Simulated assay, not measured.
Amino acid sequence: MKIIKLNAIDSTNTYLKQLAKETQLLDETVVVAENQLSGRGQMGNGWLSREGQSLTFSIFKEFERLTVASQFVISMAVSLAILEAIKRFNIPDISIKWPNDILSANRKIGGILIENVLEGSVVKYSIIGIGLNVNETDFPNLPQASSMKLETGKTFPLEEVLDTILKNVFKNLKNLSSSDFSEMKRLYEINLFRKEKVSVFETPEGSQLNGIIKGVSDSGELLVETENNPLQKFQLKEVKLIY
Rank of each mutant, 00 (worst) to 15 (best):
D138P: 09
P230D: 06
E205K: 15
K167D: 14
E28R: 11
L209T: 12
S146M: 07
G110A: 02
G129T: 05
G211A: 02
N172H: 15
S11C: 04
I190D: 15
A81R: 07
T152L: 03
D10A: 12
F89I: 01
E160Y: 09
K61D: 01
L166T: 01
E34I: 09
K185P: 01
F57N: 03
K214T: 01
N133G: 05
V161P: 02
K174G: 09
A8P: 12
K185G: 00
E159S: 14
N168M: 12
Y125M: 06
S70Q: 10
T226F: 08
E202Q: 15
N7G: 11
Q53M: 15
G46D: 11
T14I: 13
G129Y: 02
K214N: 01
E160R: 13
I130T: 04
Y125T: 04
Y125H: 09
L113V: 03
L83F: 05
Q144W: 13
F234Q: 07
I4Q: 10
G215D: 03
K97G: 06
L241P: 06
K61C: 02
N228I: 11
G206A: 07
S38Q: 15
I96P: 07
F156I: 00
E189H: 05
K124N: 10
L187M: 14
K2Y: 10
A8K: 15
E221N: 15
F63V: 06
S177V: 02
Q208W: 11
V224C: 05
R40N: 08
T12E: 02
G131H: 01
L142P: 09
P143Q: 06
L26W: 10
Q36G: 00
I91M: 02
I3V: 12
P230K: 08
S207N: 12
S147I: 05
R88G: 14
E64F: 15
K21I: 10
L142K: 13
E189K: 01
T29E: 04
T29I: 05
S54V: 09
N210V: 10
M184P: 05
N116K: 04
Q208T: 14
E136Y: 08
G52Q: 00
T14D: 13
V31Y: 05
K233S: 14
M1H: 11
L187A: 13
V134A: 04
T155L: 11
Q235N: 14
L241Y: 06
D93I: 08
L80A: 08
A105T: 14
D101M: 00
L192N: 03
L19N: 08
S126D: 01
F193I: 04
T155V: 14
Q235W: 11
